[in-house]
């Protein structure tokens, strides 16, 4: 019995399905129960949240949490499937502190809203950027430029006349 099947045995109602992806056990979790499952997983000894990944599957958005247990030397991946129009899931910053920046990254690039996050804002792109670039429906035709304001802050605009050379 791998770690995902163990979780399915403990919480049969919250775990939708189990499987193996790239040699790592993976469990698909109902998004309503995700915070409860995350607490249980932390109790099982998965103390390290390695990375949070967001994937745009056009009809849905998947968020994958890659976990590792230093005590058991085991991997576990949790996956939640979200609605494409309004992707929302509970934040796990109260359980793993590292989720703060990882969730901000997923919010920045994929546009997943994490409910209960203490400071949900962009982490890589400057404030004011239009769209989430790793979405399949991101508009690549309008180019956006960054300039520096008077106080050193980043200003985003599609007009690059202050930045580009006059030709």
């Amino acid at each position: 019995m791998n770690s995902a099947e163990e979780l399915k045995y403990l919480l049969p109602n919250s775990v939708v399905s189990v499987g193996v992806q790239t040699n790592k056990p993976q469990a698909v979790i109902r998004k309503e129960d995700f915070l409860k499952v995350a607490e249980k997983v932390k109790e099982l000894g998965y103390d390290n949240l390695s990375v949070i990944t967001g994937v745009d599957r056009v009809d849905r958005i998947e968020v994958i949490y890659n976990l590792f247990s230093y005590k058991k030397k085991q991997n576990l991946a949790l996956k939640v499937v979200l609605d494409h129009r309004s992707p929302e899931v509970d934040s796990v910053t109260s359980i793993w502190k590292v989720a703060d920046w990882l969730e901000r990254e997923t919010y920045d690039l994929v546009g997943v809203k994490f409910n209960g996050h203490p400071d949900l804002k962009r982490i890589l792109l400057p404030e004011g950027w239009i769209g989430h670039p790793l979405r399949k429906d991101y508009d690549m035709n309008t180019e956006q430029f960054v300039t520096i304001g008077e106080d050193g802050e980043d200003i985003v605009s599609p007009d690059g006349s202050n930045l580009l050379r006059r030709k």
């Binding site: 792109l125 400057p126 956006q144 430029f145 960054v146 300039t147 520096i148 930045l163």
Partner: peptide
Amino acid sequence: TKRMAPRVKQ
């Protein structure tokens, strides 16, 4: 990068 470009220009 777009964010570094104004710094390079400066």
